[in-house]
Design a protein around this nucleic acid. Structure first.
Lengths: 356, 356
DNA sequence: GTGAAAGCGCTAACAG
DNA sequence: CTGTTAGCGCTTTCAC
């Protein structure tokens, strides 16, 4: 009476049962696919009609409380408004829905307090499993979840312990693709704008950079890599200036992601330098629209959709079969050559000749 | 025993009660902020300690079942991987979390079947309210929800009935901003790439275009507006070609969104036309990175975060106060002048002089 | 201020 | 095959 503004009175199994002239547990069995066959077609039809007529919808909350399975998966991502997560989310959701699950998504903006809240919320809501896109190399959420023994899989980033399964791309390999490409073009002095080192992506890519450069016997002074404090345009801009100040001989810059590369574009512009004529720049992730930049960005494509769908499938398997398959999945990225990387100018090559 | 792989045995109020030596309803009262003061500090402290020690977390499912309020809000968006929705989602989530709610987000890819599923899922999970970003001008979801009497607010798009509150931007005004700007630059023959007409955004913008052009007494033949079947790059490209074929005198194109504008860039490029020298182009939405295009896109900025936060607050108000405030919120967009629109070439002006 | 008791809507033994 | 019964974990009158 009082709450006339709120949702209509809910139709329950009992009411449907009364309308169909059966016991309410019969209604339950009819509505549930797994028990549906226990009921005579005739009765079932009657029940279904009554349900239809009354507008019955099963209350998932009550069912979950009873079965101890919510069919809800929690997803925690650091940034929803970034080019990389939406496609992953999309793919996750697709396989989840297909299998009768729904996702509750929390965005943390990389804020530990919000992560904590998100985690508490997910536990309180009895999610059946968690997909974590915000893992740091030593992540408290991962620990908490593991302690609780509930299924969890990390995407895109991984932690350092190796105890929790993850679906990531091979960042070491990816950055090598870039460095090799640059070297083939003739670059001898390649710089790296690294991402945050507490993230597996940032650290793996800079590690990969060091390895790749060493393998080629190229110059790899400490000064050729500068760490951007964040994966943002602005951080990239600043880091690029710093790199060029510290190491003016640089002819090519491999940025740890596209946003950083865009920051490099800006910095070069501010310095009156042309890309790729004066300096080559590469990105990472192949974000939407980077093909439309001037120049179109040479970058590394990661299989975002596959990351998402693999992670979801893995999680569901762990949930439904209890398999503790620890196998990390490491996907291969792919070089996308466009026009932001070209051969260095002869003059640059000459000016440094013999300096090594 | 059997299910050793699944989540740890849940700690309940009863166990905490036993550990603290009180009745379980006392525990409930302590844990709930609203009833917390009914309990002596002393007892409360004891309970809290026991809860802490046992790792008690209240089961939101059970609580929701009992209270009939889930503190979950459903959000349905047509595309999560679009430049426009993520910031809106972000803002929604922010105010929701602040007030103790969580969001369950469903993405439909504009697929009616998926929308239907999403809707069913939300109802089954007893969401307290719904934010709908996928409304069409005659939307079955809106109808279903309204019939059910549950709180709903639409964002970004609205339906045609005016019975359900929405938070949108003033598309008619926004497109006028663009047309006025183009006219001031000296354009006399302005074309429009319209978006899908079954969406309020698409139809309002083309309506706005017609009005603005008429107001200025500019040429506005039926041929100057061509409808893109979708808000995509490719649709924009095709529409642009069609427009230019039908109406070669066009010197400026107002696209109904940024993606369409980008498609125009591509089409112009294919025709060997330069923007803005030969043809001016404008977008709509001010998506990320359009400032980095060549040329940087002149467009209209919509207050995405405000759309989200307003919608969330409105919904919460309806839920908590039962206020049926029907007031639609219409936010003002803003012109962002960059370099894709410039004065038409004198030659173009001359060649058409006197033709009207 | 705290305990007792009832019940939210559902599923799942267990009977028959 | 269908009905009976007993909770899932919590909140909330109602007593004391």
């Amino acid at each position: 009476m009082k709450r006339s503004g709120r949702g209509r009175q809910q139709v329950t199994v009992r009411e449907v049962a009364r309308a169909a002239g059966v016991h309410f547990s019969t209604v339950s069995r009819v509505m549930n696919p797994r028990t549906r066959e226990q009921i005579t077609d005739n009765v079932a039809k009657r029940v279904l009609r009554a349900a239809e007529r009354l507008g019955y919808r099963t209350n998932a909350l009550a069912a979950s409380l009873r079965t101890r399975r919510s069919r809800v998966i929690g997803i925690i991502v650091p940034y929803i408004d970034s080019p990389i997560y939406p496609p992953i989310l999309l793919a996750i959701e697709e396989v989840l829905n297909e299998r009768g699950y729904v996702a509750i998504i929390c965005n943390t903006q990389n804020d530990p307090a919000r992560e904590e809240r998100a985690l508490a919320e997910m536990m309180a809501r009895q999610v059946d499993g968690l997909i974590l896109g915000s893992a740091t190399r030593h992540d408290p959420i991962v620990k908490a979840w593991a302690r609780r023994g509930a299924p969890l899989v990390m995407v895109n980033r991984t932690d350092q312990t190796g105890e929790t399964p993850s679906v990531v791309t091979d960042d070491v390999f990816g950055i090598r693709l870039v460095v090799d490409h640059l070297a083939e073009l003739g670059h001898k002095t390649i710089g790296h704008i690294a991402g945050p080192q507490q993230l597996s992506t940032g650290s793996a890519r800079s590690e990969g950079f060091r390895q790749a450069v060493a393998r080629l016997g190229l110059r790899a002074a400490a000064q050729t890599v500068v760490i951007a404090e964040d994966f943002t345009r602005e951080a990239g801009r600043r880091a690029c200036h710093k790199l060029l100040n510290q190491f003016p001989q640089t002819t090519a810059i491999a940025a740890a992601n596209d946003l950083l590369a865009i920051g490099c574009y800006e910095a070069l512009h501010e310095r009156g330098l042309a890309c790729p004529k004066d300096i080559s720049v590469t990105g990472y992730n192949d974000s939407p629209f980077v093909d439309l930049l001037t120049p179109p960005l040479t970058t590394v494509r990661i299989p975002q959709r596959e990351i998402g769908s693999r992670a979801a499938r893995m999680l569901l398997q762990r949930i439904e079969e209890g398999s503790a398959a620890n196998a990390d999945v490491v996907l291969r990225p792919q070089l996308v050559v466009r026009q932001s990387a070209a051969a260095p100018r002869i003059a640059d090559l000459l000016s440094h000749a013999g300096k090594d």
